[in-house]
């Protein structure tokens, strides 16, 4: 049975009497331990789908089921032990006036989990940060280190599903590689299911087994990783995304120019 099932999801934002459909009739299902990628440009609704799962966007149609059960409204505490999210900007997703220790131990405090000290130290080690960082503030860390803390926080409650909203797009290329490696290792070790959003086809290709291309809030095409690698996309839009990816560009230039 699929772990995440989204059926005909529609998200409508209302502002000043105007209605904006950010997501329209999107359906997808993700198997346990699978890694599923959502790709699209700005305004494609890819991040909105993640926010809708977390109850942070107004769902106006369709259904979301986690483990076969419809998600509760409001999401509640049980939901937080199943689904967690990593945000795009590590500078904005950590509380600037809380130490790393507080950021990591607060989820445990909320859920009354004992043995917090040991688990915080363990979480830091898991994401490759020295335990000496424990009482630092976010502004004493680099972007990559902050994103590691954000990942550690998301994993404190040992969720099954991790929603990744452009987790590396604010990072330098070399740091991106480290964070992607970390995510893959954690998925392996903890048996996680990923639902990942990115505008970068190469990143999605590296991380995901199946991919959905979105445009203007609608599904354009769903394909497997092999389809993508061998350029077997059927729609023009998916192909234009593929052609515009930065690493394709290099192939064109390495050929000697006349």
């Amino acid at each position: 049975m699929a772990l995440i099932e989204i059926d005909d999801l529609t998200v409508t934002f209302r502002s000043k009497g105007r209605e904006v459909r950010a997501v329209e009739g999107v359906s997808l299902s993700v198997e346990p331990r699978e890694s599923y990628g959502l790709v699209g440009e700005s305004g494609s609704g890819k991040s909105t789908i993640l926010r809708a799962i977390c109850g942070m966007a107004p769902v106006t149609g369709g259904s979301i089921r986690i483990g076969g059960k419809p998600v509760p409204v409001p999401r509640g505490r049980a939901f937080s032990t199943e689904v967690q999210m990593v945000f795009q900007d590590p500078y904005a997703s950590l509380h600037p006036r809380h130490t790393i220790d507080r950021t990591l131990s607060e989820p445990l405090a909320i859920h009354g989990v004992p043995g917090r000290d040991a688990r915080v130290v363990q979480a830091l080690t898991d994401v490759g940060l020295p335990p000496a960082f424990r009482f630092r503030y976010p502004h004493q860390l680099s972007g990559g280190q902050r994103q590691r803390v954000a990942i550690a926080r998301a994993l404190m409650l040992r969720p099954k599903i991790l929603l990744l909203d452009e987790p590396t797009s604010a990072l330098d290329a070399s740091v991106q590689a480290e964070v992607l490696n970390l995510l893959n290792r954690l998925r392996e070790e903890q048996g996680l299911t990923f639902l990942m959003v990115s505008h970068d086809l190469a990143v999605i290709d590296h991380m995901c087994d199946r991919i959905m291309v979105l445009q203007h809030g609608r599904t354009v095409e769903e394909m497997t990783r092999d389809d993508l690698a061998s350029a077997r996309m059927t729609t023009a839009y998916a192909r234009s995304l593929f052609d515009a990816s930065a690493d394709r560009m290099l192939d064109a230039s390495t050929e000697p120019t006349p």
Binding site: S174, A177, N181, N184, L201, A202, D205, H206, S245
Partner: peptide, 16 residues
């Protein structure tokens, strides 16, 4: 080398 490539290996990316 640290950038992923479409159709590239899924082995951990080389890091600096």
């Amino acid at each position: 080398n640290c950038l992923p490539r479409i159709g590239g290996s899924r082995a951990p990316l080389p890091v600096l």
